[in-house]
Amino acid sequence: MYGLSLNVRAAILSCLILIVGLLVWEAAIPAQKAVGELTEYERLTGGGQPKAGVPPPSQVIVKAWEQLSDPFYDAGPNDKGIGIQIGYSIYRVLTGYFLAAAVAIPLGFLIGMSPIAYKALNPFIQVLRPISPLAWMPLALFIIGDSEASAIFVIFICSIWPMLINTAFGVAGVREDWVNVARTHELGALKTAFMVILPAAAPTIVTGMRISIGIAWLVIVAAEMLVGGTGIGYYVWNEWNNLDLTSVVFSILMIGVVGMFLDSMFAYLQRRVTYVE
């Protein structure tokens, strides 16, 4: 055991925890009786239907295998593959997110560079920021009309704040010495912004972007439960209505996996732009 590296030992421990956890889960769920063994009474009260109970992991794994081997099938509005549903969600998240970035990063630059812009805009930011993004939904649905665009708007509004605030904070905190280096080298405003201020503030900006993508992924599930139609949030809600808890558990896991994937992309970006002073 001691010959193994820390990482290998940690991985072994992770696997152990997973296996033990799954076994405990499996053991805790009483097995469903086969239909033949049901009493008359049980059959009459719907016991013959797949029972709406928390599924054991074995069932979830079977479900996952089934879904992931054909993730993109499309059999009508209420029966689409998990890949398609997640695809819709990611599409909405990224659209809203990048629209937010396109607004927040330049605006954050402005606020960070100009104390007067900071002071003037700060009260608005402070009031708008704590509003739950879903609170915008009715207004968005009314004004925009389109449910798809409303969902994107909700993502936009929830991802804008961390990026805006972090960009402003990062830009305002750029060391004056570095700006002086740019000035003594007669770099123009644009060159100073891209060669000095952006790389100097990048770690803070990317931290904001990472927080934003995390929030956006949290919010999309709720937003899709509200607007319906497509997406992983709708899928979860729909399976709940079908009392298919195996699918619910499976999609919860998928939400986690995709969220982790999104986050790790930004973690990678963060490592790329981080510098040691």
């Binding site: 060391r175 010495d177 570095w178 002086n180 280096v181 000095v196 790389p199 990048a202 732009v273 510098y275």
Partner: peptide, 12 residues
């Protein structure tokens, strides 16, 4: 040209 006391190199 200026040489600053704290070097002011761009760390990235």
């Amino acid at each position: 040209g200026v040489v600053f006391q704290n070097y002011s190199l761009l760390p990235w």
